[in-house]
């Protein structure tokens, strides 16, 4: 037993964050510090927004920040990813070698493309997969029977299935939305719950390379439309006719010495 408990008590008082922190509920967005909140805000939106995303593969450094933050934003279980970064090479972060013997490597972040003509939606027997008024392709877990037809139909392989109860690392909890039950399909929701609060999707605000642009494709003034006008934007597997609202900018031309 030691003395001086009073000194220690004062000493430790400063260490308890719960002591003076607000403990009221409220959405995560409401709690954001003003600067962070401003950073995440959607630039502009029209009367009838149609949300889209643009990924600059030149700027993408394959860091998976967007993929990881998506998991904690959306409580995506272990073994599941709504968003992942593909390496256009031999293996993860490994180059392929072109005809001249030069190694090459690029990254392709891939999540739901929010197809305007979404094959997953067309095949879903229960209309669990649907497109909302703002062009976002969503899955209503309450209606999903888990037939996985949509997974077979999606050319991009971005849907994942809850084969069992969502698995979590011991002790860890996460998520700004509830997890989906076993036996249902899930995928990128374009962070629809954030858009509702005028915040851009998590992967966009968290990309340290600023390789992602999000915005209203129906608003001429949106940043995404400006860049699409200036630099174009490719669709993945364009020939499939799925009309993705996620577009990609190609890598820059390299200048040899």
């Amino acid at each position: 037993m030691r003395d001086e408990p009073d000194v220690l008590a004062t000493l430790l008082a400063g260490q308890d964050p719960a002591a003076d922190a607000p403990s009221a509920g409220g959405s995560a967005v409401d709690h954001l510090p003003p600067a962070s909140r401003a950073w995440g805000e959607i630039d502009t939106r029209s009367q009838t927004p149609r949300w889209g995303m643009l990924v600059d593969t030149e700027r993408c450094i394959g860091c998976w920040s967007c993929a990881v933050v998506c998991k904690s934003e959306n409580d995506v279980a272990l073994g599941m990813w709504w968003n992942r970064i593909l390496t256009d090479g031999d293996d993860l972060d490994t180059p392929s070698v072109d005809a001249h013997g030069h190694p090459q490597m690029e990254w392709l972040p891939l999540a739901c493309q929010h197809c305007d003509d979404a094959p997953c939606e067309k095949v879903c027997p229960t209309a669990a997969t649907y497109t909302n008024d703002e062009g976002i392709v969503l899955v209503d877990a309450d209606k999903c029977i888990g037939c996985r037809y949509c997974m077979a139909a999606c050319p991009y392989g971005v849907r994942v299935f809850n084969w069992g109860e969502p698995a979590k690392a011991p002790g860890v909890e996460e998520g700004m939305v509830p997890a989906r039950p076993a036996g249902t399909v899930e995928k990128c929701s374009l962070c629809v719950h954030r858009i509702a609060e005028n915040q851009q999707p998590s992967c966009v605000v968290s990309c340290p390379a600023q390789a992602r642009i999000f915005g209203d494709l129906n608003d001429d003034d949106s940043h995404i439309n400006q860049v699409l006008r200036d630099r174009g934007g490719d669709q993945l597997l364009e020939q499939k006719g799925t009309q993705p609202k996620v577009r990609y900018l190609p890598p820059r031309r390299r200048r040899s010495l």
Binding site: P17, A21, P22, S23, A24, G25, G26, S27, A28, V29, H31, L32, P33, S36, N132, D133, E134, L138, D140, A141, D142, G175, M176, V177, P178, S189, V192, H193, R194, I195, A196, E197
Partner: peptide
């Protein structure tokens, strides 16, 4: 707990309602 689900307009029908947090610390 203090977890609570809130319906937000754009997604009232999706079941994907945002969950609350107690605080956000920088």
């Amino acid at each position: 707990s203090t977890v609570a689900a809130r319906a937000t307009p754009a997604q009232a029908s999706t079941g994907e309602d945002a969950l609350d947090v107690d605080r956000v610390v920088r």
